[in-house]
């Protein structure tokens, strides 16, 4: 790692102030991705602004409209334990990384990083959630802008994510056996006004919605409804773990499994 300064504010306003001054600063969530990136010298900020002491962006609650609100600084283990109102989301959080990683990594950090193989983007896009930041509210459909890219601006911090709770939902992750990241992951959520299907791990553009499957499932929520649908391998990630065609095939398989498991 290159040398940097580290600040550990306890108030959100102080964190925002630090991130907006002249020093080249980067926010540090749980660090489970950023610290390995710093070690590999893939990131080299002059200063890190550590968010782990900002208690006001941690915790889980239910809003008046029934949405499940999760603070951006909430770690995966706390979501796994505390998001019982949205079981598919709690289960997704319970299967990220390993227990020690889940005690540090945060939902806000994961979303801001938007790793093309991470789990949370699928839940956020698949639920049509709202990402609340220090500046504004961003609809999930406007938040993800491709691999490791989001609509967040410099110094903008994710304070909360609001998930409308679906009637039924399920997340299926096909793990890359060494890293445990999603080789492909599919999140299916059925709402009164339709079904959303979000896919992570597959596309070179990061998480995306599979609109054909959404249309088919909205009229018939059964695994059979998506039986004949398939995606092209073009634009899918192709690497030593699997070809683009293989990933495209997995999307179909996992979507059917998710629908079946959602019941």
């Amino acid at each position: 790692m290159y040398a940097f300064d580290i600040e550990r504010p306890t108030r959100l306003t102080d964190a925002v102030k630090l991130l907006s001054d002249a020093t080249d600063s980067q926010p540090l969530g749980g660090g489970q991705t950023l610290i390995p990136a710093l070690k590999a010298r893939l990131a080299a900020p002059e200063r890190l602004v550590c968010l782990s002491a900002v208690d006001e962006i941690k915790g889980i609650c239910t809003a008046d409209d029934g949405a499940l609100c999760i603070g951006g600084g909430t770690c995966h283990a706390d979501v796994a334990a505390g998001a019982g109102a949205y079981p598919a989301l709690a289960s997704l959080a319970a299967n990220i990384g390993d227990p020690a990683v889940r005690n540090r990594g945060t939902i806000g950090g994961s979303l801001a990083n938007n790793d093309p193989s991470s789990c949370y983007p699928a839940a956020v896009l698949g639920s049509g959630a709202t990402v609340v930041t220090t500046n504004r509210k961003i609809a999930a459909d406007d938040f993800f802008e491709g691999m490791f890219t989001t609509s967040l601006e410099e110094g903008e911090i994710i304070t909360e994510v609001r998930f409308p709770v679906p009637e039924k939902a399920n997340y299926q992750k096909f793990e890359q056996p060494a890293s445990r990241f999603a080789l492909v992951g599919v999140f299916v959520a059925k709402y009164a006004d339709g079904v959303r299907v979000a896919v992570t791990g597959a596309s070179e553009d990061g998480v995306f919605r599979w609109s054909e499957a959404e249309a088919a499932l909205s009229s018939d929520f059964s695994a059979g409804a998506v039986e004949g649908l398939s995606l092209s391998g073009d634009g899918m990630i192709s690497d030593m773990h699997g070809s683009g065609d293989y990933r495209a095939h997995l999307v179909g398989v996992l979507t059917r499994r998710a629908v079946a498991a959602a019941g």
Partner: peptide, 18 residues
Amino acid sequence: HVEGRAVKACTMFAAEAE
């Protein structure tokens, strides 16, 4: 264990344990 929870001490800065 940090505050009673298992963490990987190679992936946390000492300053974060203040």
